[in-house]
């Protein structure tokens, strides 16, 4: 029963994703098309060409085709996995994205995990010790971090730990003068610390504040009161009735924060010159690398969609109340 439901759920989600991807690619393609960027001009760069050659190129790339035809061509290539060639890197977009996304994924995953666990823990602690200085400290920290922009925090960390203390390098994923293939794991992790920390610091605040307010809400619920009336108290009470009731919403929120993480990583990678997908997005935008830009739009769509779907999945299959009502629907 549950297996059948899961398959149905995943099938539905996959269908939604395909429709979403088509919509996103068509819309972004049209947006690029009506932008003043001339793709052929960007392709040939600073080279000067005769009008005749230019016309040939236009003909070759199909610049003069109708918009509808262009969209259909683009979707057709997309369906075959052909995202075009990056104008900056001169290699297929899929390769650029594959490489860049790997680097970013580690950064995002580490900060996601770290901010989630630590944020949840701090939130529970603040809610448990509501009104004490521990609670106030965590709250003040969260408010400050929430209102501070990511790039500013990144710069501060850079100034303290890289410039003043010299503990970490100021940027790049590999030491200067070394080939990417020769980098040791330690060297690589060493360079990941500051960017990951920057992303985590902001992530922690949000999840901590959410967890705290949820726990405070649960603490004033009837069932919490009744548990108290039955002699339950202290940490055990929080564990049995508090955490049980807030962990699912907290995990869901953390998965929903994928989109913010993606936005954050663009800024962080820029500050730390970390060669990830975010940096590629900025470069592609600035240098009008349209194939790469469109590719990144698609991959970020998939990424955020996956986050949201996992959040959905958690709710549907872990909460006994929703599990039951869904089961009755079919």
């Amino acid at each position: 029963m549950s297996r059948k439901k899961l398959i149905k759920f995943l099938g539905l989600k996959a269908g939604t994703l395909i429709v979403l991807l088509i919509a996103v690619s068509v819309i972004s393609f049209i947006l690029v098309e009506i932008s003043p960027i001339d793709p052929v001009r960007m392709y040939i760069g600073e080279m000067s060409l005769s009008q005749e050659k230019l016309d040939d190129l236009n003909e070759y790339w199909g610049v003069n085709q109708s918009l509808a035809l262009k969209v259909v061509n683009w979707l057709g290539n997309l369906a075959n996995g052909n995202l075009g060639t990056s104008l900056i890197y001169r290699i297929p977009v899929t390769e650029v994205i594959g490489e860049r996304f790997q680097a970013s994924f580690m950064l995002i995953f580490i900060s996601w995990l770290f901010s989630g666990i630590l944020g949840f823990f701090l939130g529970v602690l603040a809610g448990f010790k509501k009104g004490t200085w521990v609670d106030k400290g965590i709250k003040i920290y969260s408010y400050i971090v929430c209102s501070a922009p990511v790039f500013w925090i990144g710069l501060i960390l850079l100034m303290i730990f890289s410039v003043q203390l010299g503990w970490f390098p100021t940027g790049l994923a590999v030491p200067i003068g070394k080939l990417a293939g020769n980098v040791t794991l330690v060297e690589w992790l060493h360079r990941l610390v500051l960017p990951a920390l920057t992303l985590s610091i902001t992530g922690i605040a949000q999840i901590a504040l959410f967890t705290r307010s949820k726990l405070v809400e649960v603490s004033s619920s009837d069932y919490f009161l009744f548990a108290k009336a039955r002699g339950e108290k202290g940490w055990s009470l929080i564990k049995r009735h508090g955490i049980r009731n807030i962990i699912l919403p907290a995990i869901t929120l953390q998965f929903l924060s994928f989109s913010e993480l993606f936005g954050g990583t663009i800024l962080v990678e820029q500050i730390f010159s970390y060669p990830g997908i975010g940096q590629a997005a900025v470069t592609a935008g600035l240098q009008s690398d349209i194939p790469l830009l469109l590719g990144i739009v698609l991959i970020s769509t998939i990424f955020v969609f996956c986050g949201n779907s996992i959040a959905d999945l958690f709710y549907k299959f872990l909460d006994p109340r929703i599990k039951e009502s869904e089961a009755n629907e079919f």
């Binding site: 009837d222 069932y223 009744f226 002699g231 108290k233 049995r240 009735h241 049980r244």
Partner: peptide
């Protein structure tokens, strides 16, 4: 009171809201 509740003194509440929905 904290010693006795759940031991010698018990409360019977009025509705299902007093039970932990996820336990």
């Amino acid at each position: 009171k904290e010693e006795l509740r759940g031991d010698e003194i018990a409360l019977i509440p009025q509705s299902v809201d007093f039970l932990d929905p996820l336990m």
